[in-house]
Design a protein around this nucleic acid. Structure first.
Length: 199
DNA sequence: AACGAAGTCAACCGCTAATTT
DNA sequence: GAAATTAGCGGTTGACTTCGT
């Protein structure tokens, strides 16, 4: 697509970059079938694509992976993204993990092009209608998750209002959790009635 | 029809975390 | 335990498409 190679594993030699061709996709898929979707550096070499491992991984995860859904994000999915974003912030891979067949990149793009705009509009209308009483702090949607207690997982303050077990929360082995009930559990109505309104 | 603006999305970059040597 | 390597993530870019004038 563009620009000169930069420093990292991908750039020690001149690598192919930019849009993938059907032939490259086929070679990559073949190679992954043989070696599995791991060891991307190895796959990059074995496939003979002259692409870096990073690039191969991204292509596989976003396009070639089986069961991937493209486009047409449903109302339910959109609602789920909104709620998860409120809960998690810009942790796209975690959000994607709760939306079967969706990729972090797709969700991130969808957020940036659709949802962030919707939210900004909503904010504006709220501001104009309730300019007088400003007791409730303005909600910042970008990268400001509800604080969660992550002590069992990674970093976290522990000083949270919404406490839950991260391990339980991200136990993706629990199939069938695709829905809103589980997230409602953590998102007791906090004044964000517009989410409810919009349904 | 032509052109610029705005929107979309695939792909890359830079960084950190995890793993291997 | 330290250093090197690899994997994964979120942010950003820019080519392409669509829309408005």
């Amino acid at each position: 697509m563009r620009m000169a190679p930069k420093k990292d594993g991908c750039t020690k030699e001149i690598m192919n970059r930019g849009a993938w061709t059907a032939e490259e996709d086929r070679k990559l898929a073949e190679c992954i079938e043989i070696h599995g979707a791991k060891r991307w550096k190895t796959i990059a070499v074995k496939s003979g694509l002259n692409r870096c491992g990073k690039s191969c991984r991204l292509r596989w995860l976003n396009y070639l992976r089986p069961n991937i859904k493209r486009g047409n994000i449903s109302d339910e999915e959109e609602d789920l993204i909104l709620r998860l974003h409120k809960l998690l912030g810009n942790r796209w891979s975690l959000i994607a993990g709760r939306l079967p067949g969706r990729t972090d990149n797709e969700i991130k793009n969808y957020w940036n092009s659709h949802l962030s705009k919707k939210i900004n509009q909503k904010e504006k209308t709220v501001e104009t209608t309730s300019s007088a009483q400003e007791s409730i702090p303005k909600k910042k949607w970008d990268a400001s998750p509800v604080e969660v207690n992550e002590e069992s997982g990674s970093k976290g303050s522990g000083n949270s209002e919404v406490c839950f077990d991260v391990d339980e929360f991200f136990d993706f082995s629990a199939e069938g959790s695709y829905g809103l009930d589980w997230v409602n559990k953590f998102l007791e109505l906090d004044g964000d009635s517009w989410l409810a309104e919009k349904r």
